[in-house]
Structures are given as structure tokens and as C-alpha cells.
Nucleic acid binder design. Structure first.
Lengths: 162, 162
DNA sequence: TCCTATTGGTTGTAAATGTAACTAACAAGA
DNA sequence: TCTTGTTAGTTACATTTACAACCAATAGGA
């Protein structure tokens, strides 16, 4: 079993017959891997924006977005829409509240629930970030044809379970 | 500003005109979000397999896969292929070594490098898991037409930077 | 009413990750 | 040789996440 590994960059593929040649399965074509790498790549550049500008985490940005886009709602409602675990939401809400981006109001008919609502500052952050998000989305999509864009969104939506 | 939040399931969309109507931008069509949700969904079901059967993490499965599929190589080489951070790789390798799935051999021409190679047990795990991966991939893709599959793989590959 | 189950939300703890600092080995010039 | 810089890999620490236990409020009977 020769190794072919010097001190130069080694991609590391053996060619000594030990490799099963009928095996054409590659990580690069494995859908979960592809999705993951694409998501990481696409997510990172946008993350830089909300992290640098507002010191937010992804969970916080999502909660902010939901409240900004769809109006006041309870944490439970956010959970139903995003499938984020309730502990994530709880902590994101706490962080946003600490930074005065939202307020909570106990509901009178069920005191377990809280109405979450953006403050003016929260709304401003949402407006700013959603503008950036839109731009970012457009940039990412620009490299594809309209048909590709359509297929991509539909397939991903289906995979995501929307 | 009415809130429409009773104790039943509330999706939480306000319809009181506060919403900017020209704003048709939705999280569900935001590519990074879509990618993330799809990746999480697709990843979770496969994760169950390698987690339940071998108690592995995703990083460990990836290292195992690389060594199984492409043969012995150094940690550095794995890093170049997967873009995983070297600390992740270091820990994954340590975990796989502890479970006797791989061995390390210092290279004689550069003692900083280690040749990583699967043991028989490691190879067996790889064979088993890659079979499952293939199945899983096929299942996921089965819901799409051949053209869609093609577009999907190409676009994702491009987004991932392959 | 009381009892039990369920629900919305929070908190504690362990596991996983990111970042930076570190060690040891090599490289390249003076 | 010595010095400086770079590289492969590990370790330490802080941040983030997952999971389970928990609390308080409500619901739905007996």
C-alpha cells in the first residue's frame, strides 16, 4: 500500500488498486453534504452583516425578522413558523429584549403567553437588515438562470418541508 | 394595533395595515434560510443513522468518509478537501482513533505530518455508512425529476464553491 | 372543588464549536 | 550555524447549542 505523501500538498488519493473502482459515490454529490456546504457558504457572508452591525446571532436575527415582517406574535407562534426549538427562541428573545429591540406584554386572557413586539430601534434594525438580506439574496441568485432559480427555490422548499 | 392572539394556535400575522404591503420578501424565499432549513432537514435523518449505529458526530463521519473513499491521507489533506477547520479535524481524528477506526503513522520525510489510515473496523463502518448514505441520497432525490436533480446538484455545488 | 395532564416558557448542565494561543518541525537566508 | 518565518497539529477558553428538568398557568374532567 503505497502512500504518495510528500511534503507538498497532497490530495491523498491512492491509485494502487485498493480503491473500489465501481464506487462512484462522492461526498460532493451527496445531497446532505452539498446542502450543508452551500448553506454554510451562503450563510456566512450574511452572518458577517448582522454580526458586525448589530452583534446578533442567527437565532436573534430570525426572531427579529419574524416580528418585523409579520408583526407582533408570541414566542410559540415564532416556534411554529421557524421550527426553532423553544429554548433557542427564549434566549434570542431575552437577548433582543436586553438590547431594547423588543418588548414583551403578558396576554390578559392567558398569562403564560407574551406578546412580543419590536421597539422603534428593533424595527429600524429589521428594516436595515432585511434590505441587506434582499440584496444578498439577489446577489446569490444572480449567478443562476431564472429557470434554475425557480427549480432551486422549489426543491429547497420541498426539502425543507415547507 | 389589534393583536388577534387568543389561546389557540396563532400564526401571528397582523392584518391591520401596519405591514408594508409592497414588501413581499419572505424568509421562506430567502436563499440562505432555505438552504439552512433544507440542510438541517436532510442532515438530521442521516445523522440518526451514524449517531445511533456508531455514536459518531458529523465531523467524524466526514473524516471517516474521506479516508474510506479516497484512501489514507494527512489531516491537512482532509482539511483542503472539506474546508473543515483543523481543530475540528484534529478532534474528529482523535475520536476515531480512540474508537480504533483509524491509525496514525508519522511520515518519515516530514515528522509534522501523519498518515491517517482506516483500520479494518473503520473500513467496515465506512462501507456500512456509505451504503446508507447512498440510499439516503437516492430517497431524497427520488422526489425530483431528473432535470431538477441536475439543476439542484449543479447550483448547490456552485453555491458551495466546488 | 380538586386532581391530573398539558402547555408556554425558562433555566441548568453537558456537549460541541470557534478562536486564538501554543508546540514542534521544517525552511530559507544571513 | 543561527535567526526568523511558516506549517501541521493540539490545547485552552469562551460562546453556542442540545437536552432534560423545571415552574407557573391553564384545561378538563371527576
Amino acid at each position: 500500500m503505497r502512500a504518495r505523501m510528500g511534503n507538498e500538498v497532497v490530495v491523498g488519493i491512492e491509485d494502487d488498486g485498493e480503491r473500489r473502482e465501481e464506487d462512484d459515490f462522492d461526498l460532493k454529490s451527496f445531497l446532505p453534504y452539498l446542502l450543508n456546504q452551500a448553506a454554510e457558504q451562503a450563510g456566512t457572508s450574511f452572518q458577517r452583516i448582522y454580526k458586525a452591525r448589530y452583534g446578533m446571532l442567527r437565532t436573534e436575527w430570525r426572531v427579529l425578522f419574524h416580528l418585523g415582517r409579520y408583526g407582533p406574535m408570541t414566542a410559540k407562534a415564532i416556534g411554529l413558523r421557524t421550527r426553532m426549538h423553544k429554548t433557542k427562541i427564549s434566549r434570542a428573545v431575552a437577548a433582543l429584549e436586553a438590547r431594547r429591540y423588543l418588548t414583551r406584554t403578558e396576554l390578559e386572557n392567558d398569562r403564560r403567553l407574551e406578546r412580543l413586539e419590536l421597539t422603534a430601534a428593533g424595527r429600524k434594525a429589521y428594516e436595515d437588515l432585511s434590505r441587506h438580506a434582499r440584496e444578498h439574496d439577489a446577489e446569490l441568485m444572480a449567478q443562476f438562470s431564472p429557470q434554475e432559480q425557480d427549480v432551486l427555490r422549489r426543491c429547497l422548499g420541498q426539502l425543507a418541508g415547507f
